[in-house]
Simulated assay, not measured.
Amino acid sequence: MKYSYIIVDDDAASISKTAKVFAGFSNYFLLGTANTSDDAVNLVLEHKPKMIVLEIDPTKRTADCR
């Protein structure tokens, strides 16, 4: 069985590293990536992935996180 996933991360280099790790597992496929919470919500609602890999630095505050 194949499992879909998305990566949510505020660091582009980290997204790339995570995608490379998952590329080694044939039963997972990447639906998309997001670097903001709004983009992440839209991806989840549109694609309904089986898994979400989330890495957001909690020390970085944005206007929508207050």
Rank of each mutant, 00 (worst) to 15 (best):
M1N: 06
K2S: 10
Y3T: 05
S4Q: 08
S4K: 05
S4D: 03
S4G: 01
Y5M: 06
Y5P: 04
I6Y: 07
I6N: 08
I6P: 06
I7V: 15
V8Q: 11
V8L: 14
D10K: 10
D10N: 14
A12V: 06
A13C: 00
S14A: 12
I15N: 00
K17C: 05
K17D: 12
T18I: 15
K20V: 10
K20T: 15
K20H: 14
V21M: 12
F22N: 08
G24A: 06
G24Q: 13
G24T: 02
S26I: 10
N27P: 00
N27H: 08
Y28R: 01
F29V: 04
F29K: 03
F29N: 14
L30Q: 15
L30I: 00
L30H: 02
L31Q: 14
G32N: 01
G32I: 03
G32W: 02
N35T: 03
T36Q: 04
T36I: 08
S37H: 04
S37R: 11
D38L: 14
D38R: 08
D39S: 09
A40I: 03
A40W: 04
V41P: 09
V41T: 09
L45R: 15
E46L: 03
E46A: 03
H47C: 00
K48S: 02
P49G: 05
I52K: 01
L54W: 07
E55M: 13
E55G: 05
I56D: 01
P58E: 13
T59E: 13
K60M: 14
K60A: 13
K60W: 12
R61Q: 13
T62A: 10
T62W: 12
T62Y: 07
A63K: 14
D64Q: 04
C65G: 07
C65R: 06
R66D: 10
